[in-house]
Computed example of a mutant assay.
Amino acid sequence: MARFLNNEAAKGWEELCRAATSNTWDAWVVLTERPRSSENLGRQHRLKGEYSHHIIDGDKLEQWQYEVTSGGRIWYVIDEENSTVWIARAGTGHPKLTD
């Protein structure tokens, strides 16, 4: 199951859907079926450093990134215990936090 961590992530997802429908659908399939996939490391990888984890309900969970377009990104958090992938950040522009 996938859920949005906040309203900003949901709005960013909507932007991605409008800008790149097919790629966003592909991302949804990967995130919900194989969130740790190493099939395409150019598009999907674990974030590093201070962004490698995200705290949700007191649990430190892995945070990953999926590249939807050349600028569009999805940051997501894998919560295995609850069988949930949390969409933490999504949008058509590259997140400047990792520059």
Rank of each mutant, 00 (worst) to 15 (best):
N6P: 05
L97W: 11
H54S: 10
E67I: 04
Y76S: 12
S70F: 14
S70V: 14
W28Y: 04
A88Q: 14
L97F: 12
E39Y: 06
R46F: 06
G49Y: 00
E80S: 07
T21N: 15
Q44N: 02
W13R: 04
R43M: 04
Q44Y: 00
A27S: 13
S83C: 10
L97A: 15
R34P: 01
W28N: 05
A2K: 12
I55T: 15
L47D: 01
S38W: 00
P95M: 03
N82V: 03
Y66N: 07
W64S: 10
N40I: 07
R89N: 09
Q63H: 01
L41G: 11
D99F: 11
S52A: 13
W28F: 01
P95H: 07
R36N: 08
E14R: 07
L41A: 12
G72M: 02
G42Y: 02
V77C: 08
A9N: 03
V68K: 05
T84C: 10
H94C: 07
Y51W: 15
T69W: 09
N23W: 11
E67P: 00
G12H: 11
E8L: 11
R36I: 13
K11E: 14
V85G: 03
Y76E: 06
S70Q: 12
V30Q: 09
E67V: 10
T69I: 06
W75L: 14
L16D: 00
L5V: 03
V85Q: 04
I74V: 11
T69E: 02
N40W: 09
M1Q: 11
G72F: 00
E80Y: 06
R89I: 01
Y76L: 10
T98G: 09
N23D: 14
A9Q: 05
E8R: 14
W25R: 11
A20H: 02
V85K: 07
W64I: 11
S70D: 14
E8D: 11
H54F: 13
E33P: 02
T92P: 06
I55N: 12
V85T: 09
D57G: 01
L41Q: 07
N23S: 13
V85N: 02
K60V: 03
A88P: 06
I56L: 09
L47G: 01
G71V: 08
K11D: 14
I74E: 07
A20V: 00
A88M: 09
G42K: 06
A2T: 11
W13P: 00
A90W: 01
R89M: 05
Y76M: 06
L5T: 01
G72C: 02
G49R: 04
E50N: 14
E14L: 07
L41I: 12
E62A: 10
W86A: 05
R46Y: 05
L47F: 02
T98L: 15
S52Q: 12
G12L: 08
A10N: 08
A9S: 04
D57H: 11
W64F: 13
A27N: 05
